[in-house]
Simulated assay, not measured.
Amino acid sequence: MTTPSMEQRLQQMEQEEQELWFSFFTNDTALELGLAIVEEARRNGQRITVDVTRTGQRLFLHAMEGTSAENENWIRRKNNAANHFGMSSWHIACRLRSEGTTMEEKHGLPIADYVEAGGAFPLLVRGEGQIGTVTVSGLPDQEDHDLLVSVLHRFLSQF
């Protein structure tokens, strides 16, 4: 199996951001989504922290055994990046890497508050746009992103 080129990965992430939209999003949706991510991580033997935040309000947070408070700091910084750019944090990180620059160099965003790492995905609702983020921390960048995207695809196929 060949590894996709950076351009192919960037195109795939753009497509994900065009496809993974909710028709509605409630506090119960946040709970169901958060639990679905936790269950998928358990099935995969992964240890993560999961956060679902809507318009600045944290609706779901769970830290699995083996994670630490540092995961929450990563989540905060990933959320800031996804909210600032309106795209997944891995999409941002890959785009900047392909350009040979950083958020701090290109946009003046401090690394204390923004991170170029996978794991945050914008919560996108039809008729509303981006309303928040769903984020995981604890795995390598691509794995954080892939876990989120696979659960979002499955979750949204139910509606």
Rank of each mutant, 00 (worst) to 15 (best):
Ser68Asn: 14
Ile131Met: 07
His107Val: 03
Gly118Cys: 05
His107Tyr: 15
Cys94His: 00
Lys106Trp: 06
Gly127His: 13
Ala81Pro: 00
Val115Glu: 08
Val115Trp: 02
Tyr114Cys: 00
Leu123Tyr: 08
Gly118Ser: 01
Pro122Tyr: 11
Ile111Gln: 06
Asn80Asp: 03
Leu123Gln: 00
Pro110Arg: 09
Gly100Asn: 09
Lys106His: 07
Leu124Thr: 07
Ala81Leu: 08
Pro110Asn: 10
Leu96Gly: 04
Ala69His: 13
Ile75Thr: 05
Met103Ser: 03
Cys94Leu: 15
Gly129Leu: 10
Val134Pro: 01
Asn83Glu: 12
Arg97Ser: 14
Glu70Pro: 00
Met103Trp: 04
Pro140Cys: 06
Ile131Leu: 14
Met64Val: 09
Asp141Thr: 05
Glu99Gly: 01
Trp90Arg: 07
Trp90His: 14
Ser68Trp: 11
Asp113Ser: 12
Gly129Val: 11
Leu124Ala: 13
Met103Ala: 01
Lys78Ile: 11
Ala63Glu: 12
Gly132Glu: 05
Glu99Thr: 05
Tyr114Leu: 02
Gln130His: 07
Asp141Ile: 00
Met87Thr: 15
Val134Arg: 05
Glu105Lys: 13
Glu65His: 04
Thr67His: 09
Gly129Asp: 10
Ser68Lys: 12
Ile111Lys: 06
Thr102Gly: 05
Pro110Met: 08
Met103Leu: 15
